[in-house]
Design a protein around this nucleic acid. Structure first.
Lengths: 397, 397
DNA sequence: GAAACATGTGCTAGCGCTAACATGCACGGA
DNA sequence: TCCGTGCATGTTAGCGCTAGCACATGTTTC
């Protein structure tokens, strides 16, 4: 509906804020005259059907009411029935052009905003879908979200967000909350979920899309890739480069099937190549740069012969690369480091990080498309979309 | 309600996934027996009131209905009226313990999930609030969100998320959508908003909290700090350290009052110290590491004498520090670099980045508290909360 | 000319829940 | 015995909107 305005990098212009639509300035900020004089093509003050201030609304009946303009108000003004207004807004072709026109004018004049809550209730057709992410700290999840939100919003669905903090119990609570809010579909992360969440979803019957994994028996549909294969491929890459004493660090596998699959892929690759899966150097960690540094430190003290560390996510790997830099370690000469996800930072590190690229935006878009299909009445049960992965060999290995 | 499970770093345990609650494995992943045998204290299979499969529901009347268990179903089963069930769930003290008990049992047996949509409509009390962020790419915004979501969820509100992509028109559309969804309060980023958004908010009368800035005349309340002062303080720090040819890079100021205020603070500090605000080295940029690198490059070619660059956000500054490392530039000997926000990466760079620390989680929490106050009936209009800032002088300056 | 159809609009009856106002009942004090 | 009081529960009437039909008008067909 609205095109996003992309502001070019080298355009330098001050906005002509004052008095138009909000300060645009901190209170302690005297606006220098030189800037004040500049004229900006700010989009704040775009022409807009001015919304007149209405007289306070009379109360009908003895119930509170939002005091908001309703469909009935518009109908009354135009001299038609409420249903006609409703139709003019939702199915314009069902209403004669003249009536539609008058209704549209009245809507603008009154500043009517449809109550989608009431609409959803009456039509029992949802206006929102939910996405449950395990974390907002890591851009890998917000990338997926971005892809999904873009697709869903352009189809008129609102996206409600939940953060499970990697806790299946929190996830189950979120599922319940979202069902209570009548969302039309739910996007989950990963393949494993609390039994409670599963039964809630099963009885609700709403479409479910699982992401990041390809469970054999998805709840509904799933979009992801083989974490096992991707991890296996990366370890094979390390072995091909000549590394033998490889360590592995991932998130805690207990609540994270992706991490678990990556660990299994790692272990299998080692075994297949006659290498030892040393439990001392198979670690779990939280998700932050400091943890990556700490893991590197631990591995080097526990098994000094370690020549490569495979981190199952780029944040940890980046933390390790940065730590190596601080410690004066040469990467990969002293120790090789590999990551997973290909976040933006990975390519900017020195040396740039070897990692596994996942098309996260595409993952989100695909998940959203599946949800839209389901909302359009199609059955998506059992659909499994593999978005693949790609080992990006850069300079840390 | 639910405590988050924090999994310690060194606990290594495989999950006993198979057959309990979903694969927990990619389809291509053969689960090695060694792992299979391990017993995890996974939270997936926690005891749960098992939800019996119900017979398909009869349709009442000729309307569709969700096919979902309703309040009336529970009431019928218990042999009370719907309102009693409603009260037992929302105001337990109004119902006798025995009745309440029977109702709770029936709720569990039937797997009843209240329809909050209908509840909101009937009570005209909202169950969700909205947060509009300019971006999900930058952790600074998701940090605020995290603080806000935590606070709001524990008060039973759902948080609906909007991403304006730094475009006031998109923001206005989001405001309209959220109003249509009947959110009880809206959190916005920054001080400047499209006229349309302002008038929509004004007539809706719902509580609004602006974040990151302290506009003189906030729409409702605001939580933030003086971007102008913070920027001024950083530039003063640079000047005190002896830098004289200072450059400035920020996001485009036209749609971003924070960037605009920071630029004004920068300009004023230069002028106050007898330095020249060179337009050639006052740049605007997008928000990513590559852009920081590009800006550094541009500045060095445009004005080689530049001895310090102040980036109005840490992502750009980090990109520049990383680029300097790649180019073999010594920081700060060859060029000093300062950032803004104190993101996690800042402290992990080599050398660690001088920046301005903002308590973003606290900002989100405070914003949420203001919303909660407003939702509790308190007037928050005109409240302005300054969360302050702190210049963190590290090694890049 | 009547039947058959299309088109635009309105009426009614809900969606599932809850506010406001009953109602019924036990208790105690006058 | 009566009445007030407090408590637990029920009845009614919506919240704002939309599905399903009914009903007027034209317009076409034979």
């Amino acid at each position: 509906m609205l095109a996003l305005a992309h502001v070019s990098t080298d355009r330098r212009r001050a906005s002509s804020a004052e008095g138009v639509s909000g300060d645009g300035a901190d209170s302690t900020c005297p606006v220098p005259p030189c800037i004040r004089r500049l004229v900006g093509d700010s989009v704040y003050d775009e022409p807009v059907t001015s919304l007149p201030v209405l007289p306070p609304r009379r109360q009908r009946g003895n119930r509170k009411g939002h005091g908001r303009v309703t469909l009935a108000d518009v109908a009354e003004r135009v001299g038609v029935s409420a249903i006609t207004v409703s139709r003019a807004l939702r199915k314009p072709l069902m209403v004669s052009p003249e009536t539609r026109d008058r209704i549209e004018r009245a809507v603008a004049e009154l500043g009517y905003i449809p109550n989608r809550i009431a609409g959803s209730l009456a039509s029992s057709s949802p206006s929102a879908v939910a996405a449950i992410l395990p974390s907002l700290d890591n851009s890998i999840f917000t990338d997926v979200l971005k892809g999904a939100v873009g697709t869903l919003e352009s189809s008129g669905y609102q996206v409600v967000l939940g953060n499970s903090h990697f806790d299946p119990r929190v996830e189950a609570t979120l599922v319940e909350t979202f069902l209570a809010h009548g969302v039309g579909a739910i996007m989950l992360t990963g393949a494993r979920h609390a039994t409670r969440a599963r039964s809630l979803l099963a009885r609700s019957g709403i479409p479910v899309v699982q992401t990041w994994s390809l469970p054999r028996r998805p709840i509904g549909a799933c979009v992801g890739f083989s974490n096992y294969d991707a991890s296996y491929a990366m370890v094979r890459h390390l072995i091909e480069r000549g590394y033998r004493d490889i360590a592995f660090v991932s998130a805690a596998v207990a609540n994270n099937d992706r991490a678990a699959a990556r660990r299994r892929g790692y272990a299998k690759a080692l075994v297949d190549h006659g290498l030892f899966d040393d439990p001392r150097t198979t670690l779990e960690s939280t998700f932050d740069l400091a943890a990556g540094a700490a893991a590197l430190d631990r591995i080097r003290s526990v098994r000094p012969s370690t020549d490569a560390v495979f981190f199952a996510n780029d944040v940890l790997a980046s933390g390790a690369v940065l730590a190596a830099l601080r410690l004066g370690l040469r990467v990969p000469a002293d120790i090789a480091i590999a990551g997973f996800d290909d976040v933006e930072l990975a390519g900017h590190l020195m040396p740039p990080l070897t990692t596994v690229r996942i098309d996260r935006i595409g993952l989100g878009v695909t998940a959203a498309e599946l949800m839209l299909d389901a909302l359009a009445g199609e059955s998506i049960a059992g659909r499994r979309v593999d978005i693949g992965f790609e080992v990006i060999a850069r300079a840390t290995t």
